[in-house]
Design a protein around this nucleic acid. Sequence first.
DNA 1: AATCATTACAACCGCGAGCTA
DNA 2: GTAGCTCGCGGTTGTAATGAT
Length: 276
Amino acid sequence: MGRSPCCEKAHTNKGAWTREEDDRLISYIRANGEGCWRSLPKAAGLLRCGKSCRLRWINYLRPDLKRGNFTQEEDELIIKLHSLLGNKWSVIAGRLSGRTDNEIKNYWNTHIRRKLLNKGIDPATHRSINDSSTPERSTTTISFGASNSNNTNTAIRNQVEEDQKSRSVRGIIECKIEQYSLQEQKQQQQQSILDLNLELKISPPSPSCYQYQQHEAVLKSGRNHSAVCFHCSLGLTNSKDCNCSKVSNNRNSTVVHHDFLGLKGGVLDYRSLEMK
DNA sequence: AATCATTACAACCGCGAGCTA
DNA sequence: GTAGCTCGCGGTTGTAATGAT
């Protein structure tokens, strides 16, 4: 027995979206908000499956999307993040304001990939194609650098505590991610292209950012922020208030997803950082 | 002008994770 | 504990646009 289909295929449209469908989806989400994608098509009067609606909204209709060509800075950031995280497009997208994972994935496959190949760099490993000594790609271990862990942990903890007090994240959290496989460090010296000592800065989003608008809505409602989203750096009441879905609540509150590091599959309690 | 090849990117699909009853 | 459901992610496909011959 196979998996049940996500929707009834016989009565759903496929292919390119029409202007009318877009308008219906936009006006429905404006009135009712996001979520419940499975039931949304029927409620909005669309002959589309929920997945298709979600994709259309997230990738093309969301108000905070930045359209147009990628800048040189964006190019470089994508390459750096990809060298660290691999094909974690959603995580990479989280660091590029107004860009979607699908857009970055397409851009990678059509532009950056070719660009790197032309330079003689393997886009999968970020190493020189001619380097015959290139070993099997090992799993890149990402960790808070030992030398900076105390400072980093303190910075994160302080940030969270400050947020609990002020209900809003202010300032900048700096996380230094160091890749510490000795073998790869050796290769790093040989290849200046691999700048794996990447500093990720989590800055307050711009007021035009969708997450920021969600955050403002929470503030206006007078509800408490009980968790901090490291993806968009905001304090939020619950996961449904955060469009990026990188925040979660528990009874102790102050649980921070570390999804943005590409370490999927769990949550990081800031208190545990002290022990690392 | 017609045809074929290539490029760009929108959209689809299957799967896994997380949540809930 | 677990089965079923929903959502989100990443890989892949389809197709319109553009370029080359």
